[in-house]
Design a protein around this nucleic acid. Structure first.
Lengths: 149, 149
DNA sequence: CATTAATATATATCCTGAATGCATCTTATT
DNA sequence: AATAAGATGCATTCAGGATATATATTAATG
C-alpha cells in the first residue's frame, strides 16, 4: 500500500507554497530546497496547475503560488487529485477485472469504504493546518507503525 | 493507491476456504476456480501458512484449510499480513527517506492516521461476514467511486 | 522588437518491484 | 516404491513510476 512520489511531491510543493502564502515561487527554488529532480517537479507543478491548486505565470519573474487560501485546501482532495488511480483490488477497475466472483463478492464495498475512511480522515485537515503548524499541535501517532520483514 | 495482487489473491483464497469451512482444498482447485496462475497461488498460500491463517498438509490427500474460525479472522489483519509494505510517503521508511523537512513536517502523522482509519475500517469485518453473506446485508458504497482520466 | 527567463509539453530512457514461470526439493499417504 | 500434494529458490517478464533531455511557448524587460 503506497502513494506515488508524485503525490508526495505534490503535497510538499503545496506545503511550501502555503508557508509562503502570497509569494511567487519558482520551480527551481523548489527543486533546490527539496533537493529533488527539477524535471520531476515540472510535471508535478503542471498537474497542480491543471487541477486548479496553483496559479502559474510564465516568463521572466514568473513562478507559482496557491490558487486559493491554504485553509480552503483539503489534504484529501490533493491526494485524490494527484494519485493516478485508486484500484485497490482488481475488481475496482472494470476494464481489467477478471475476478470470477466479482458479482457475488462483498469485499469490494468493504475495501471501498475503508478507502473512503482513509480519504475522509485526510479531509479533516487543510494545508493551513500543516504549514508552519507546531508539530505537537497535531494528532500524534496512535500506534506503532507496521513493519514487515 | 493500490494493494498488490498478492493481497487480493490472499483474500480470495481465504474467502474460498471460509465458504468451505472445514473442508480440505488444494492449490490446484483454487487455481482452477479462480482461473489464476497456480505458481502465483503457491506463494500466496505459503505466506498465509507462515502467518498462521491456514493449515497446510503435504502428501497425497493434502491441501489447506483455515487455521481458525472465519469469524475470528479480521479483514484488516489479513491485509496487514499480506501487503509488502505501507510506505505511503517517502518519510515512512527511515531507510530510504531523504525528505529535507521530515523532522518538522506534520503530514506524516496525518497520513499515518488515515492509514490507521483504513485498516480500522477493515477490522470491523471478519472473513465470516464476507463468506456466503448476501451482498445486500453489507454496507453499500457511500459515494461514487473516484475516477481519474 | 529582440532577448531572456521562465513555464509547457512531448519523447525517451532507466530501474524497481510486482507478477509469473520453472525446476527441484520435501513430505506424507497408499 | 509410487504418487500426490505443498515448499523453495531462481529466473524471467513486464508495467509503470521515476528521471532525463530537448524543444516549444509565453511574457517581461531593456
Amino acid at each position: 500500500m503506497r502513494l506515488t512520489l508524485y503525490t508526495d511531491y505534490s503535497l510538499r510543493v503545496l506545503l511550501y507554497l502555503a508557508d509562503k502564502e502570497g509569494e511567487i515561487v519558482t520551480i527551481s527554488e523548489l527543486a533546490d530546497f527539496f533537493k529533488i529532480s527539477r524535471n520531476h517537479l515540472v510535471k508535478v507543478v503542471h498537474n497542480l496547475g491543471l487541477k486548479d491548486y496553483i496559479l502559474t505565470t510564465r516568463g521572466r519573474h514568473g513562478g507559482l503560488k496557491l490558487a486559493r487560501p491554504a485553509k480552503e485546501i483539503l489534504i484529501g482532495a490533493v491526494v485524490r487529485a494527484t494519485e493516478p488511480d485508486f484500484d485497490l483490488l482488481e475488481c475496482f477497475n472494470p476494464k481489467t477485472d477478471h475476478c470470477v466472483i466479482t458479482r457475488s463478492c462483498s469485499l469490494k464495498s468493504v475495501i471501498f469504504n475503508a478507502q473512503a475512511a482513509f480519504l475522509g480522515e485526510l479531509d479533516k485537515y487543510t494545508l493551513a493546518d500543516m504549514a508552519n503548524a507546531p508539530k505537537k499541535a497535531l494528532p500524534s501517532f496512535k500506534s506503532i507503525p507496521i513493519v514487515h520483514s
